[in-house]
Each structure stands twice: as C-alpha cells, then as structure tokens.
C-alpha cells in the first residue's frame, strides 16, 4: 500500500466525520471544500491516464459551483430574516 493514498484516505475520513458532527451551517462549508480536494486527488491516483485528470477537473469545478450556491443562499436567508422582523 502506498503512503500517498493512505495519507489522503486518512484525511478524508477525519473530514467526513467532522462534517457530520459540526452544528453550525456556515462552518460546514470549509470541510466540504476540503473533502472535494481529497476526492479529486483520489480519482486521479486511481485512474492513471489523461481522461482521469479530465474527470477530476470537471468534478472539482462543478462541486465548487455547488458550494458557492449554498453559501450565497445562507447569506440571502440571513438578509430575509433581518429585514422581515
């Protein structure tokens, strides 16, 4: 077993447990960002070809757009709660 893959796997398990256990909504998003980094690295280390690298890039940019939309929605909902009271 390689030390590179073992290191990334250990970090990914720790980050996954911390996403599950954190209470706050806004503080979960940095952990999700770290999880996306780990998953892109594991995909390209599993498939050692240029097509694997293309898959990793497309996955990473799409998941970044998704977390951007979630953060924007949390800000809008705080603004709604502040103005309507």
């Amino acid at each position: 077993m390689d030390i590179v893959i073992l290191t990334i796997g250990t970090i990914m398990v720790i980050v996954g447990l911390r996403i599950f256990l954190t209470r706050s909504r806004a503080l979960k998003l940095p952990y999700v960002c770290c999880l996306n980094f780990c998953m892109a690295a594991l995909i390209v280390l599993y498939i050692k070809s240029p097509m694997g690298a293309l898959t990793a890039v497309v996955y990473f940019i799409s998941s970044t757009i998704s977390s951007n939309a979630i953060a924007h929605t949390i800000g809008e909902m705080k603004k709604i709660e502040k103005t309507m009271k």
Binding site: G16, I19, F20, R25, K28, V32, N36, S63, I70, T73
Partner: peptide
C-alpha cells in the same frame, strides 16, 4: 440547509 449540505456530501 443542513439536509442540502449532507446531500452534496452524498453526491461526492
């Protein structure tokens, strides 16, 4: 919102 975040975690 927590449900949607965990759904993004499931998609990964």
């Amino acid at each position: 919102i927590n449900k949607i975040i965990m759904f993004a975690f499931l998609e990964a």
